[in-house]
Design a binder for these strands. Structure first.
Lengths: 337, 337
DNA sequence: AAAACTACCTAAAAGGTTTTCGGTAGCGTA
DNA sequence: TACGCTACCGAAAACCTTTTAGGTAGTTTT
């Protein structure tokens, strides 16, 4: 018995003086083993520090207890929490996570997909980096696939995305409840589904409240700089505004900064709601930002749990929109009545 | 032949009318196969969409072509780039990465370590979330381990950390070269090795330049708020300063903001250097921050490549300090002469 | 014509585990 | 005593691949 080589069940069986089959049954809690024999085997296993070879086990069972986590785009700010949530859910279920980053290259994605299948993963979770729909991984894969954050273009696939329409609605309702009436909206590029959805949510919630939006939605980029520029535009064209919904915390941070410099008090004169709950920005602006949290970690966790279900044959196709939540900070204290 | 079940080499051999052994050799480019036979096998494999089962292969070879990536602390801002760099290096080498997040719990870390070993990973990379040394994973593991970002307490282990002393030195040298002479230093908590190292680097570089540090190093926390507070302290106690090295971009952002509000022009009156090159902060402050980049992605990649070497038996124990680099932006334009 | 070679191919073992099925021993019953 | 029953244990197959050692046919050498 080479001390280097990890002990196998054969070693355990030999030490306990039983056959391999009996050792296996004893270790795995199967019946048909006398109590005395079982303890003898367990003792031998303990002494040898035996741990079953997961490879051999997987080969036999056909189940690798592993899932592939394929990040289609270089995993960025939004991908991380999703990934963590998924890892969390899998870790609890004794699954391991095989991580692959395709870096936005679909060739590389196909390559990784192959190697993951070669390793006989039990399922796949694909996390994108924007909420724009992405091409479906070729259908008729031998394992279930769940898309997180970026949905699949194919509605027969299973996707989990944040409910950005609902999130923006939350922001507007909060402002309306706080007594705001003249609300503007500044957001990112029209090329982003997130920007479009949030704008739609703002519009819908305003309509529900019987209010007109203050000016057209200002589409720009996802930067603090744009937030500042947009603030200038808004204050010039709609000086009467008393609140603004921003499509991201970065934009909100820029807006707040510009507003301060123009002497507009926040929240007294203008209330501001951000989006993303990106702590470093949202808590460090002055005042700290009320914002929308997409609960990405929960989204990832849910997607992972759904993948479990799918592996067990219980899939629910379609795009599942996960609720966002409102995080209230100082930037939206109620308007003085 | 069940159409569901993926084809095995047996299926390929049968279709090509050869033995399993021959099929294997043909597919793997071994000699001892007639050209005509080889193409026949390859064709059969192609038609069947055969892909070798990585599990069976690993079981036989004892090499799983997989490494475990163990994030001791919930993988945060600094862990991510390291992780990406590592994933990049491994992906290129046809290795797969098994991701485990211990969430700062050493019990969970041990648990994950076990399951990774059960899966017969070829090596382990442990990435921490601060540069403070962490306990070594019990020695005499059957596979090599490399620590990234957070070094192991045991000097016989292999660790890769950013050279924070050198990084801070870079910052000071740049300021001195730009004509600054009265330099202060603001940083994070003394409990962080990073803060202490950077302070040491600042001190050393000042000494080398024959300068006195302007006031004692101000240790605080890693926040923007502290940057603002520290600015007040510095301007009160050392109003003559013409430059400040900040221990993080967050602190620098706070400092810049407070300085602006006090009417101190940056860089004209005071030059500011941050640390981390955290893009969202460094490029969005006004002016954008000169800062130190720890090249974490490169660090991760290097650690991974070293792990390769270690797997091949070529390890170089000790703590490897990876050089940082200076990223020059507007916050340190040369002082007017 | 027999021996030695070469080129190509295959049977079988190995890797570690789980499961199925058959076997043995002891006991109670007729 | 002979039979059936229960409780326990073990041999062998299965998972899929690679490698080793050996075998066959055809060709060259002596």
């Amino acid at each position: 018995m080479d001390p280097q080589r990890p002990p196998t069940i054969t070693d355990v069986a030999a030490r306990a003086g039983v056959s391999i089959a009996t050792a296996s049954k004893a270790i795995n809690g199967r019946a048909q083993v006398r109590a005395e024999t079982r303890t003898r085997v367990l003792l031998a296993a303990e002494e040898l520090g035996f741990r079953p070879n997961a490879l051999a086990r997987s080969l036999l069972s056909g189940q690798s207890r592993t899932v592939g986590l394929l990040t289609s785009d270089s995993v960025g700010r939004f991908g991380i929490p999703v990934l963590l949530g998924a890892e969390d859910a899998f870790g609890a279920g004794e699954m391991a996570v095989l991580l692959c980053d395709a870096r936005g290259d679909s060739i590389r994605e196909q390559y990784h997909l192959r190697t993951l299948l070669d390793r006989r993963v039990d399922g796949l979770i694909v996390v994108g980096q924007s909420t724009n729909a992405r091409p479906s991984l070729s259908r008729d894969l031998p394992v279930p696939v769940v898309y997180a954050y970026a949905p699949s273009e194919d509605p027969r696939d299973v996707s989990f995305v944040p409910d950005d329409v609902g999130g923006a609605r939350l922001a507007v309702r909060h402002l309306v409840t706080s007594g705001r009436r003249r609300i503007a909206h500044i957001t990112g590029p029209t090329g982003y589904r997130a920007a479009v959805d949030r704008a739609a949510g703002v519009g819908a919630a305003l309509a529900e409240a019987g209010l007109e939006q203050c000016g057209e939605t200002l589409f720009g980029v996802w930067s603090q700089r744009w937030g500042r520029q947009a603030a200038e535009i808004v204050f010039r064209s709609s000086p009467e505004i008393d609140a603004v919904v921003c499509g991201s915390d970065q934009i909100a941070a820029g807006f707040v900064e510009a507003a301060r410099e123009r002497g507009r008090r926040i929240p007294d004169d203008v209330a501001v709601v951000g989006y993303d709950n990106w702590e470093v920005l949202a808590t460090e602006t002055r005042p700290p930002l009320t914002t929308i949290d997409m609960n990405l970690e929960f989204l990832g966790k849910t997607a992972a749990q759904h993948l479990f279900a799918a592996i067990d044959g219980k899939a629910t196709p379609g795009v599942h929109r996960m609720p966002c939540s409102l995080v209230i900070r100082d930037s939206t204290a109620p308007a003085a009545m």
